[in-house]
């Protein structure tokens, strides 16, 4: 049971990817998201956690329940001190990949969530934040 409204989990191994999937699934389910939205959230979490593991090696996932204009949402941030993304616009282009992925990690996650923001600096690291609102823009 994830009862805390916010928390942090490490992303440094394959089993951590499974753990952050579990955390986000429990949290989204408890918040009242439907099964399809829960699946969207967990899938985006899996993509972004794997990005950390693959490109930066280690990082963290931070989660919290947020409120905007009385609407509750889930916010998940994926923070690493990895190499950074040289060209953000390119990284968000469907089909683009710099490793052996299918190139849908970032653009795919963006489609699954209501919001996706990236901050990235070369040599400093990357933070990807995703949000989904309980009264979301998609069904």
């Amino acid at each position: 049971m994830i009862s805390a409204e916010q928390g942090t989990a490490p992303v440094a191994s394959e089993s951590d990817i499974v753990t952050v999937r579990k955390i986000s699934r429990e949290m989204a389910t408890q918040m009242g998201f439907g099964i399809t939205d829960v699946t969207r959230i967990v899938t985006a979490v899996s993509e972004l956690a794997r990005n950390i593991y693959r490109y930066a090696g280690t990082g963290i996932m931070q989660w919290q329940i947020i409120n905007r204009n009385g609407i509750q949402g889930i916010e998940l941030s994926f923070v690493d001190q990895g190499p950074g993304i040289p060209d953000l616009a390119l990284a968000l282009q469907p089909g683009y990949t710099s490793s052996d992925g299918l190139g849908m990690g970032l653009p795919g996650s963006k489609r699954l969530m209501d919001e996706l923001e990236i901050e990235s600096e070369i040599g400093t690291g990357t933070t990807v934040t995703i949000r989904k609102w309980l009264r979301g823009t998609s069904y």
């Binding site: 099964i35 399809t36 829960v38 699946t39 969207r40 899938t43 993509e47 469907p94 299918l102 849908m104 653009p107 795919g108 996650s109 489609r111 699954l112």
Partner: peptide, 14 residues
């Protein structure tokens, strides 16, 4: 394949 997985898989672009 579950309906929720089919929806997500398609929207992810796979």
């Amino acid at each position: 394949m579950r309906p929720s997985v089919a929806i997500t898989t398609t929207q992810l672009g796979m």
